[in-house]
């Protein structure tokens, strides 16, 4: 009966993942490997960026809006924020679907999201990346790594660490069923600063991590060390988010750009 319960929980988390995220690894890989009839529009210089803005992301950039005359770096930064806000919204709905999460203390739910969403976001972002670039605008565009690197500093420093993480993370060859449990484990983490009811969260965390371990053994029988490798990735993601938060603070201080109120809430007093 215990094994049946574990399988049910794993299935519930996987279903919540498929339901709540507009992009997943299976969809992204189909596009990135050229198995769709509509290949993504490639953004590789200022000209293709402008073309993409007029068609793919017109709503985000607000073609008639305030950003129209701003430099490319600021417009791209704004687009990244829009995507982040959407993903945070999706992650919140996903978290609410993880059994037990909604019965946690509401302030603890906020704390878990505040510290977990960016780690989860960067883990899932890897699905949309290959060594050459990143899918954008729901997979209708592909922005090249070289173009992102060619932007002026500090904006050029934004994505390269995520590509470096993604290349190592993608080498583990996780599928969406693995990622669903991994993302749930990121969110249900008992050592976030300021949690009130730690023991309640630790019980949830233990059951999710245990199910992740069993699932990996069954789904990847040829890689016995996948579970410890993934635990290491949790630490790597924490470091990646710390560096990202510092870069965003620097951009906020030195550049004339606004930060979305939801993202401000998350970054404020984070680390």
């Amino acid at each position: 009966p215990q094994l049946a319960d574990q399988k049910t929980l794993a299935r519930q988390i996987y279903e919540a993942y498929l339901k709540n995220f507009s992009m997943n690894k299976a969809k992204a890989r189909t596009i990135l490997t050229g198995k769709t009839s509509n290949p993504p529009f490639v953004i590789h210089d200022m000209e293709t960026l402008q073309l993409a803005e007029q068609t793919l992301v017109a709503k985000m950039v607000g073609s008639a809006g305030a950003l129209k005359d701003r430099e490319a770096e600021v417009r791209i930064f704004h687009c990244c924020q829009c995507t982040s806000v959407e993903t945070v919204t999706e992650l919140t709905e996903f978290a609410k679907s993880v059994p037990g999460f909604s019965s946690l203390d509401l302030n603890d739910q906020v704390t878990l999201l505040k510290y977990g969403v960016y780690e989860a976001l960067f883990a899932m972002l890897a699905s949309s990346m290959n060594k050459d670039g990143l899918l954008v605008a729901y997979g209708s565009g592909f922005i090249t790594r070289e173009f992102l690197k060619s932007l002026r500093r500090p904006f050029s420093d934004m994505m390269e660490p995520k590509f470096q993480f993604a290349m190592k993370f993608n080498a583990l060859e996780l599928d969406d069923s693995d990622l669903a449990l991994f993302v749930a484990a990121i969110i249900c983490c008992g050592d976030r600063p300021g949690l009130v009811n730690v023991s309640h969260i630790e019980v949830m965390q233990e059951s999710i991590v245990h199910i992740l371990q069993l699932h990996l053994l069954a789904n990847h029988p040829d890689d016995a060390f996948l579970f410890p490798k993934l635990l290491q990735k949790l630490a790597d993601l924490r470091q990646l988010v710390t560096e990202h938060a510092q870069l965003v603070q620097e951009i906020k201080k030195t550049e004339d750009t606004s930060l979305h109120p939801l993202l401000q809430e998350i970054y404020r007093d984070m680390y």
Binding site: V85, V88, T89, Q109, L113, K114, L262
Partner: peptide
């Protein structure tokens, strides 16, 4: 609570959109 009012709102109300 005031510090994280959008996160609170998202957690309590799934239909509330976040303005981009």
């Amino acid at each position: 609570k005031e510090k994280h009012k959008i996160l609170h709102r998202l957690l309590q109300n799934s239909t509330s959109p976040v303005e981009l």
